[in-house]
Amino acid sequence: MTKPLLSVEHLSMQFGGLTAVDDLSFDAADRRITAIIGPNGAGKTTVFNCLTGFYPPTVGRLIVSFGESQYQLEQMEGFRIAREARIARTFQNIRLFPQMSVLENLVVAQHTKLMNASMFSIAGLLGLPRYRTVESEAIEKAEHWLERIGLLARSDWDAGNLPYGDQRRLEIARAMCTNPAMLCLDEPAAGLNPRESAELNELLISIRNDDGIGVLLIEHDMSVVMEISDKIIVLDYGRKIADGEPDAVRSDPAVIRAYLGEDGDAQESSNV
């Protein structure tokens, strides 16, 4: 059997006396949307922060494998996680570069490729042909994504001036421009209206099917989670209480008790 794209093994994260994530293990597969859900404070964002190298986990291993390569994320510097292990991520509170144009936000995501071609900017400055080719490829890729998210007409706007829903989609496009093996989305549907949320579903499904990468999703919006996820992991107080396909999770009594039944305030965003 081939290794899963992402394998989280016995992850624990403690902040002082608080255990935010407690002995969590799960796998996320290539070409699948895996959702992590749970009540506020369940430790979902902490899992993401461990994945992207914000904190070293107290215990546990985070393994990414694709092709012949295998990476242990907990031992890598942040920028190498993005560059080599090819993990891309978005945030609950959008983190675009607000003073760069929409197009530049997508080009800067292809930095590694451009920087390698530019030989410390010298080739870029002189406009050497090889660099020009790489640069025009980067712009092409950016424009391809702008077309997919319907922002091509506004490519020279400052990203900070876009409407909220567009910023959300632009952030996903930017993450995709880093050429990730796995896309981690932290509440991408937060604050979207039903129409935008349906567009988001379409986008995520097309990323799974057409771009063929794994998607890891934290979400509160049940319509998104139940509709598009292939697998759902439910956290409560940092522990996994269920793991399986949407239908199985929906009817799991432990889940209903911890989350769907008692916590009716599911739309509210968490801030773990």
Binding site: I81, A82, S118, S121, G124, R174
Partner: peptide
């Protein structure tokens, strides 16, 4: 000025100015 506005290095610098953490997540060696 050309370096800052037109090259990958300049773009990386501006990205680091605006959000260093995010720049690292895009593979930029801050």
């Amino acid at each position: 000025w050309t370096v800052i506005t037109k090259t990958a290095l300049g773009r990386a610098q501006r990205a680091c100015e605006q959000d260093r953490t995010m720049a690292a997540l895009l593979g930029i060696d801050v």
